[in-house]
Simulated scan of single mutants.
Amino acid sequence: MANPATENLRRRRAPRGSGDLLRDEILEAATELLLGTGHAKAVSIRSVAERVGVTPPSIYLHFQDKDALLDAVCARYFEKLDEEMQRVSAAQSSTVEVLRAQGLAYIRFATETPELYRIATMGEWRSGSNVDAALASSAFEHICATVQALIEEGTFPPGDATAIALELWSAAHGVASLLIAKPHLPFGDAEAFADRVLRAVFTGNMVTGLVGAEASPDDMVEWLTAMGPSLKRQSV
């Protein structure tokens, strides 16, 4: 049975031709090979050309080499993440739930197409790559805007929204990377595990803001211990 997540990444094949139409078809073929085989080694200029029905030199008219082709595939891949981020955000009733949903959507998106995510985020950095820009617009900008909204609401303490968003994105990336690279670890339910990690980072950031960025772990424990009784009374 086809995976709906991967099906959403596949575009209707354009008529053969030249220019943008052929480029789109090349990207489609490379994406299908990656999703079908689960490994970048299965994608070559020759295999993509055969799938499209053109000669290898036709591929090189659009992409300098295999790395450039995979870069473009991954950049297009993250356009779908942008759509998913917007979808889950619209379904939430509060800003803090928006942030939680965005983090979980990011991790879920990564684990549903692990090879594409691995290429996009764990490969060697390339100057002029389109992937970083795609990542920023599809994930980081959404998270950053939500963090800024939480600061304005007073849920998060005043501070640099970009720095906080980067911390949260790092946590989401770490969870996604471990789930992909080390699936044998005792995570239990992957979504529940991801949710616990994200919750810990969210609340930890709020406590740090209340106690002070320079506070030591002992200072935080002391503050939480002192505040514990009053916090419990408020929750009753």
Rank of each mutant, 00 (worst) to 15 (best):
A120C: 10
T121H: 10
M122T: 12
G123K: 02
S127E: 07
G128W: 03
N130S: 14
V131I: 15
L135I: 04
S138I: 02
A139T: 06
A139L: 14
F140H: 09
E141S: 10
T146I: 05
T146N: 13
V147T: 03
Q148R: 14
A149C: 11
A149Y: 01
A149G: 02
L150N: 05
L150W: 00
E152L: 07
E153F: 06
T155M: 00
F156N: 03
F156P: 01
P158G: 12
G159M: 03
G159H: 05
T162P: 01
I164Q: 00
E167D: 15
L168A: 04
S170G: 11
S170K: 01
A171Q: 00
G174I: 05
G174R: 06
G174K: 03
V175R: 01
A176C: 13
I180Y: 09
I180E: 13
A181R: 08
A181E: 14
A181V: 09
L185P: 01
L185S: 03
F187Q: 12
D189E: 14
E191W: 04
A192E: 13
F193E: 04
A194W: 00
A194K: 00
A194V: 01
A194D: 03
V197C: 08
A200F: 13
N205W: 00
N205L: 05
M206D: 06
M206C: 12
T208N: 10
G212W: 10
G212R: 03
E214M: 11
S216W: 00
S216T: 15
P217S: 13
D218S: 13
